[in-house]
Design a protein around this nucleic acid. Structure first.
Length: 794
DNA sequence: GTGTCCCGCCACACC
DNA sequence: GGTGTGGCGGGACAC
């Protein structure tokens, strides 16, 4: 194979510091490593940590993926062995291929077959595991974390084509970004939560949930008809997605394609597909998406009219590719959905819970999200997106994307409203004028909280009443018997009780409408009570008053009497909100923060004593500007289910300084880094700032401190290198970080805003500008007679 | 038989 | 023409 793979006197490899140099198109013998990796993955034992990038292969470590093959070759053919020794394996690739042929000749068919790695061992998922194991989940900002595709392909002994598959998906999650050809930057999971939030938001704006429901409904209606696929067209058009949401790649500030000139392909379909796929999980409840539905939606969005079998199959194949990578990231997990029509492959979201919405969070958009048909804004094409992003081939001269114009207007409008001198909403919601430099005391917040508690009690009653009526309606809808069949064959009810589904393993549950109703009701009431308590404590305004900075979470507190499906209104919002609020409010309580629309920004703008990442402070050389600075390492806003329970309480109260505790979001606008996100180059505000648009270290001091801290922490908790070719390959679960001192830091909120949307998420705007009757359409069409649906893990 | 997905051909964009 | 990139689908493997 290569020098690394050269068998030593003992038939062992003797690789030192040089990575393997093979450029095999086809991976050869990987069994030794693959088996152990597989075993580790399958057993899923022990906390997963991604060790630092493999830099050297320990001396005397005998097993590389091709070692077995080498040994076999040597054993089978002295000629080959001699020739290898003579040639010194200069051209490893042709050599190996040749050797392979020889081996094939020397070994019987069966033996040769056995000498080959199994299909599983060559799977994209496994490869992705290996790939991920090379890099830390949370690389230290500032340290170079570059990925050379060639090197990776060589070291993993796969063809580069496969690496592209992985990298493309990772890129869709902004875990990597492209620097130049053949070169990527590794960001790890720093951006993951932001990305997920963004994707969720875009997914919501695109009404994927409704589309999923609609497709399911159509499927149900056509259960025994053969032309069900036709309906996706209708479905898509009913929702109104196809005509308006030709989606492009969603970028984050600071994560734009930097090497525009080498990003010739603008469609980036695998990336876009990956993002859409993730969106489907994020917006659906339960977070289980069947490949079929996903494929239909993805096809439906692209070219409804082209929907045919082959396209469908191709889409499914691509989804498998994506799913493999996402599975390796432990964001999803394969399950099977069993319906009347049979068992369908599906995937369940196992990644972090993602906040429904973060005010002010707006994707950098090469995305053109749903635009109402009555919108005056022209719909940008993909090409337009790309051209606007990369208007020239040389320097990147970023201009405002047409699709953003509307948002900009909205923001400007919001700003006007916010800057109104007598805006009572602003005062009440944030507790502080955005332009004010005075910070209310904690006592003032406590008073407000007490007030809310009192007011909340009556609200709670009202909500319960409304909820009950809502539930009563839904009880008329045939409930699903959707079950999750876990690996052990047990079945978990996975519908209205999805929150518990992950932990529960029960035998089949007969879900009569009545019993489900009761359970759901109980759940909802529990949620409500919790939420109200949290809301009362944390919301900066009494419910119903948060008009201006209304976030979905607070919006969700209004129990809608609109009758959509129970899942949509009752379950999605309440359960999610409940989960999210549990954490967020918990934190808010600790910090004495009002939760209002500016919560995110509050967090961001707090002088958090650590974890301000230089790269987060980047003002990308163009397009859009990230607003917030204090981007902690992740997971508070988007905890995984496992982490969620304990992580809040584990949060060190590190940023509850009296000042930070009361800085409202709006105050952040006074800070140097608080640049309206839509400012483009030439913006006077930007120019007047004491920072350059490319300043990488806005929060220099804190960043330095943080870096120091992190370095110390890193040294203290030195994670052993992942030894890809070593005997004891340890595949550590990617999401389970070791409980090293650094972890509390990493579990803090990722709250960077990408776009400044002072008046609240543009979701509202977009929804409000939705054709009036569209909601009615959903009301009608989305009340889906649910059918038997079982979901089973493999 | 169906589900899964590896594999590599080949087209496209840029140099 | 060379290279990097990645869409695509045949067909083999797994179950």
């Amino acid at each position: 194979m290569d020098r690394c793979g050269e068998a030593g006197p003992e038939g062992k490899e003797n690789c030192s510091s040089e990575p393997c140099k093979s450029t095999l198109k086809t991976p050869l013998k990987q069994s030794a490593t693959s088996h152990s990796v597989l075993a580790e993955i399958q057993s899923n034992s022990g906390p997963l940590t991604t060790p630092p990038k493999l830099k050297e292969i320990p001396l005397g470590d005998p097993w590389t993926p091709t070692t077995n093959l080498k040994i076999l070759i040597s054993a089978a053919s002295p000629e080959i062995r001699n020739r290898e020794q003579k040639k010194g394996l200069q051209d490893s690739r042709s050599e190996i291929l040749e050797a392979k042929h020889c081996l094939q000749e020397h070994l019987s068919g069966d033996e040769y077959e056995k000498s080959q790695p199994s299909r599983k061992e060559k799977s994209l998922g496994l490869l992705c595991h290996k790939f991920l194991a090379r890099y830390p989940n949370y690389p230290i900002i500032g340290e170079s974390n570059y990925i050379c595709l060639d090197e990776v392909a060589e070291e993993l002994t796969v063809e580069r084509r496969r690496i592209y598959d992985i990298v493309n998906v990772l890129e869709s999650l902004h875990m990597v970004s492209r620097l130049a050809k053949n070169r990527y930057a590794w960001h790890g999971r720093h951006n993951l939560n932001k990305t997920l939030q963004t994707l969720k938001k875009v997914g919501e704006e695109n009404k994927y949930m409704q589309l999923i429901q609609l497709i399911k409904k159509r499927e149900y209606e056509n259960e025994f008809e053969l032309d069900g696929e036709k309906n996706e067209e209708t479905a898509t058009k009913t929702i109104g997605i196809n005509e308006h949401s030709e989606m492009c790649f969603i970028e984050l500030p600071g994560m734009e394609f930097r090497a525009a000139s080498v990003n010739s392909r603008k469609d980036k379909s695998l990336r876009v597909m990956s993002q859409k796929f993730v969106m489907l999980f994020l917006v659906s409840t339960p977070q289980i998406v069947s490949l079929e539905v996903a494929a239909k939606i993805l096809i439906g969005e692209d070219h409804v009219e082209d929907l045919d079998k082959s396209k469908f199959k191709t889409k499914i194949r691509r989804l498998y590719d994506i799913a493999n990578v996402l599975s390796s990231l432990e964001l999803i997990k394969k399950v099977h959905v069993t319906e009347e029509r049979g068992r369908k492959p599906a995937f369940k979201w196992t990644g972090p819970e993602v906040l429904s919405d973060i005010q002010g969070t707006k994707p950098i958009s090469t995305v053109s999200t749903f635009v109402p048909s009555n919108s005056l804004e022209p719909k940008p094409s993909k090409e337009q997106c790309s051209k606007n992003l990369f208007p020239t081939r040389g320097k990147q001269i970023f201009t405002r994307h047409p699709s953003l114009m509307k948002l900009v207007k909205s923001i400007e409008s919001d700003r006007r409203i916010h800057s109104a001198p007598t805006s009572p909403v602003k005062t009440s919601t944030t507790g502080c004028d955005q332009n004010s430099s005075t910070f209310p005391s904690k006592m003032a917040h406590l008073a407000a909280i007490c007030k809310q508690q009192l007011e909340g009690q009556s609200s709670e009653l009202k909500m319960k009443t409304k909820l009950t009526s809502n539930l009563e309606f839904n009880s008329k809808v045939p409930f699903s018997k959707m079950t999750t069949e876990e690996g052990d064959g047990n079945v978990v009810k996975d519908d209205t009780n999805f929150l518990n589904a992950k932990e529960k393993k029960v035998t089949k549950i007969e879900s009569t409408p009545r019993s489900l109703l009761k359970r759901s009701q109980a759940l909802q009431e529990n949620s409500l009570i919790k939420k109200c308590k949290h809301g009362q404590k944390s919301l900066g305004v009494p419910m119903g008053k948060s008009v201006k900075n209304e976030r979905p979470s607070s919006r969700a507190l209004h129990v809608d009497t609109e009758v959509i499906s129970f899942q949509e209104r009752g379950q999605i919002k309440f359960e999610k909100l409940d989960q999210n609020m549990e954490c967020c409010c918990d934190k808010e309580r600790r910090e004495g923060f009002p939760e209002d629309g500016s919560k995110t920004n509050n967090t961001q703008e707090r002088p958090v004593p650590f974890a301000v990442h230089a790269h987060e402070a980047l003002f990308p050389s163009g397009y859009l500007i990230p607003i917030a600075r204090c981007t902690q390492h992740s997971n508070e806003t988007t905890f995984s289910n496992k982490e969620k329970a304990g992580i809040c309480s584990l949060q060190p109260a590190t940023y509850s300084s009296p000042i930070t505790g009361v800085i409202p979001v709006t105050a952040s606008e006074l800070t140097a880094v608080n640049i309206p996100a839509f400012h483009v180059s030439g913006n006077p505000v930007l120019q007047s700032l004491p920072i350059s648009p490319k300043a990488e270290h806005v929060n220099t001091v804190s960043e330095n401190v943080n870096l120091q801290q992190r370095k110390v922490l890193k040294n203290e908790s030195q994670i052993p290198d992942y030894e890809l070719n070593g005997k004891s390959v340890a595949v550590i679960p990617l999401q389970q970080q070791p409980s090293v001192p650094a972890k509390p830091k990493e579990s803090q909120v990722v709250t960077e805003n990408f776009f400044r949307t002072p008046g609240g998420p543009n979701t509202i705007a977009s929804l409000s500008s939705f054709p009036e009757n569209s909601d009615r359409v959903f009301q009608k069409t989305l009340t889906i007679p649910q059918r038997k649906l079982e979901v089973s893990d493999d």
